[in-house]
Write a protein that binds this DNA or RNA. Structure first.
Lengths: 227, 227
DNA sequence: TTCCTCAGTTAACAAATGATTAAAAAGGGG
DNA sequence: CCCCTTTTTAATCATTTGTTAACTGAGGAA
């Protein structure tokens, strides 16, 4: 899953240079050459990182940056400012608007790549262990949402816990006993048939027509999550 | 950027002990030994945390605390009360005045440090930005105003704090427990159903007819702010 | 192969759990 | 003392859960 870099820059030559290099690095790249449009696109596409020219037609990079940093939904997106002059003063002003880094033109592509990599590494882990994926299944423990092939699925609390448990050790077969202990709790007694029922409900919720079912039944042993 | 701790205490020996220890911990420390002056200084300097003696000449710690907690501009500053007697009754009274924590003399410096750290951790992020937006919601922490789609909305103090808390981590699901701790305070006990009531009022206030509601209920987990 | 048995599947339902709502009671400040 | 906000309470509403019982199908024995 490659990161998406957005370029806000009006000089076509720089854009194509950047685009070429970034795509070679494996990033998905899109761009805009005017400020107002850039802001709109950023809010729509939610890129993972933004390269922004200091000066832009319509709406300056500074303004865009300020705007983004005010909004919780976007203020985590790292921004690298590009500027022609290498003056200290501008540098400080850039950080002041909330930019995360700063590169002066002309810049070395190598250095830029390093900075991009570093910023992306920093922003990614925020959402790492709380979001778990297994093949085309994704569960988010913070927002308590489950997705199959990027489509949201609603589960009851028990089904959620059940899936969460399976996803911790995919392919492993768990007996009903084990599932009861781990999903329901050590000292709660319910019929072991109850597990079947919840397995069924989970299956119905996450299955997709005409595809291999995700939960395998292992006769006289239990169930497991399969790819 | 080190935090600024203010000490309101008249016993010189305690002041110097505290000062020595806190400065060693890296805090900026200032103090006053009489109540009236303390209040003046606090309002002028806006420290990040206050250590306050229960009994003070001129104006008692209780009075200062009440005074601060009434004022929007200062009621976020955490206050730790210092008192000679370890009686339950005083403790309750202390919390009643709005103190955030309570330590009885003689106290262990280690414990005090832990309490200070915990309170600072809790209050620091608040001062991140004075105006925060999330989608079409905007809240201004200075003027305590809330807007939805640029239209002003009036909220009670609790609803304001609730929304303010949600907006710090949108989409994240918080349990009633967590909300009580973070919005009401660590050592305030109210029924967890009370949260529901305030959620309801907040919903009524910020919702717009025929649009997706902003606050999501996650059964048996809590609530979250959604876009 | 056929039949039998046993384990797993399924649907329906009742009970329990949890959320919403309105209204009354309790505080607190001016 | 009055007004406004908060908290509690309790009735109601909605969803989830566990149970039961009938059904299905796999796999072993004859």
């Amino acid at each position: 899953m490659s990161a998406h870099v957005f370029i806000a820059e009006d000089e076509a030559s720089i854009v194509s240079l950047l685009k070429y290099n970034l795509e070679k690095e494996g990033y998905k790249v899109s761009h805009s050459e005017n400020g107002e449009d850039a802001l709109k696109q950023i809010k729509f596409k939610q890129p993972d990182l933004i390269l922004m020219d200091w000066m832009l037609p319509e709406l300056s990079g500074v303004e865009i940056c300020k705007n983004l940093k005010k909004d919780n939904k976007f203020n985590d997106i790292p921004v690298i400012m590009l500027t022609a002059k290498g003056e200290e003063e501008d540098k400080l002003k850039a950080f002041d608007t909330g930019a995360d880094d700063y590169v002066t033109k002309p810049f070395s592509q190598k250095e830029l790549n390093a900075r991009i990599k570093s910023l992306l590494r920093r922003s990614k882990p925020q959402s790492s262990s709380d979001i778990v994926e297994f093949t085309d299944l994704k569960i988010d423990r913070i927002t308590k949402r489950v997705y199959r092939k990027d489509k949201e699925i609603t589960l009851g609390p028990t089904e959620f816990k059940l899936l969460d448990f399976f996803i911790k050790n995919p392919k492993r077969v768990y007996s009903r006993e084990q599932l009861l202990n781990n999903v329901w709790g050590e000292n709660i007694y319910v019929e072991s048939r109850t597990v079947d029922v919840h397995i069924r409900r989970l299956r119905q919720a996450i299955n997709i027509q005409n595809t291999k079912p995700l939960i395998r039944t292992v006769r006289s042993a239990g169930y497991s999550l399969e790819s």
